[in-house]
Design a protein around this nucleic acid. Structure first.
Lengths: 129, 129
DNA sequence: TTAACTGTACTATATAATGTAATACAGTTA
DNA sequence: TAACTGTATTACATTATATAGTACAGTTAA
């Protein structure tokens, strides 16, 4: 489920954060579902527990999970999400990448198709309009 | 034109790379236009010339600029662009961010609007379909 | 209550990344 | 030739990253 590339220039804890975010966004990890414990995941991936903890701490700061001492780390329910990565920042990132796509000659139609595919899988519940 | 935040956790050379990429994508820097010299930009931004050179080297590796010893660094013409950031990688990045946007409740309509705005300013020339 | 599991905190250590500083060399241009 | 370009090198300091070991505190189930 989680794959780490030790030879990557991207820090391990950052790979973990992105990996778990992806699992949450795609619905593989559901609200209030328990994540592997720090020690268990460290053992599975042959990585130091401190590194796992750093990733979990980061995910907590971003508002994607919450932790309970003695019980574990759990996926933050969507409705309770707050203080997470700012939507404005997220939209800015998307805008920058779309500008680049336009610059390198990727067609608008192609980008729209990506949006369609993503929103087809997980029905749009409305929101910022 | 270029703004650097010395207190940011993002490395200076990386800020420079993103800053200059943005200038290129938005058309502020045109094909074959000369960038400020390493020493000049270093002086302007009160940053070490080595850091500027590192950013320029990175931009060259990404295929966005080319350098000529004794003359300077110049914007790589779009048609000559090759070995730049892989389009597949770029599209993957966009897909990930759109998944996140969907997850946090941003509407599809809102994302489409962003695409429209970007492609309105710089007319789509066709490309990957 | 105890045993085994959870998260968390701390110190120490090693390596890599980042940034600055100074110097030198090579190519271009007026 | 003088003054500008890019490039390369060495040295140093600071920070980020990752590991290792230990310890403490809360939770859960036997």
């Amino acid at each position: 489920m989680i794959h780490i590339d030790l030879r990557s220039r991207e820090p391990i804890y950052e790979q973990l954060v992105n990996n778990i975010k992806e699992l949450i966004f795609s619905g593989i990890l559901q609200s209030d579902e328990k994540l592997p414990s720090v020690r268990e995941l460290a053992s599975q991936l042959t990585i130091n527990p401190n590194t796992i903890q750093k990733a979990y701490k980061e995910l907590e700061n971003l508002g994607y999970i919450y932790s309970a001492r003695g019980r574990g780390n759990f996926v933050m329910p969507v409705d309770d999400k707050s203080g997470g990565e700012n939507s404005v920042e997220l939209l800015n990132k998307i805008t920058e990448l779309v500008k680049e796509a336009n610059y390198v000659g990727i067609s608008k139609k192609f980008i729209i198709k990506i949006i369609d595919d993503v929103y087809r899988k997980n029905i749009d519940k409305g929101g910022i309009e």
